[in-house]
Amino acid sequence: MDRIPGKDLLLAACRGMPMLDPTHPMLDAAAELAKVHETRDITAACDGGKLALRRIELIREIDEWIAKAAPPPLPAATLHTETLGQIVDRLAQLTNQTFIALAHAPDDLYQDSWARLCDLASGYQDLVDELHNGTRRLPSTFLHLW
Rank of each mutant, 00 (worst) to 15 (best):
I4Y: 02
P5F: 07
P5Y: 06
G6R: 09
G6V: 01
K7H: 10
D8Q: 12
L10G: 02
L10N: 02
A12Y: 07
A13L: 04
A13F: 04
A13W: 06
C14T: 13
C14F: 12
G16I: 04
P18Y: 13
P18A: 05
L20S: 02
P22E: 05
P22G: 05
T23Y: 12
P25H: 09
M26L: 12
A29L: 00
A30W: 15
A31D: 04
E32S: 07
A34W: 05
A34T: 01
V36F: 09
V36I: 15
H37K: 10
H37E: 13
H37L: 11
H37G: 03
E38D: 15
T39Y: 11
T39K: 09
I42Y: 12
I42H: 13
T43W: 08
T43N: 04
T43Y: 04
T43C: 09
C46I: 13
G48H: 09
G49H: 10
K50V: 14
K50S: 14
I56E: 05
E57F: 04
L58W: 05
I59M: 05
R60A: 01
E61F: 09
E64F: 01
W65V: 08
I66Q: 14
A70S: 07
P71L: 00
P73M: 01
L74T: 04
A76R: 07
A77W: 02
T78K: 07
L79S: 03
L79G: 00
H80M: 03
L84C: 14
Q86E: 15
I87E: 15
I87W: 14
V88L: 13
D89N: 08
D89L: 02
L91W: 01
A92Q: 05
Q93T: 08
Q93K: 15
Q97C: 00
F99G: 09
I100P: 05
L102D: 06
H104V: 10
A105I: 02
A105W: 06
D107L: 11
D108W: 14
Y110F: 15
Y110T: 06
W114C: 04
W114Y: 00
R116C: 06
R116Y: 02
C118Q: 09
D119V: 06
A121S: 15
S122P: 05
G123C: 03
Y124C: 08
D126G: 00
V128A: 05
V128M: 09
V128N: 05
E130D: 12
G134L: 02
R137Q: 09
P139R: 00
S140W: 03
H144C: 11
W146H: 11
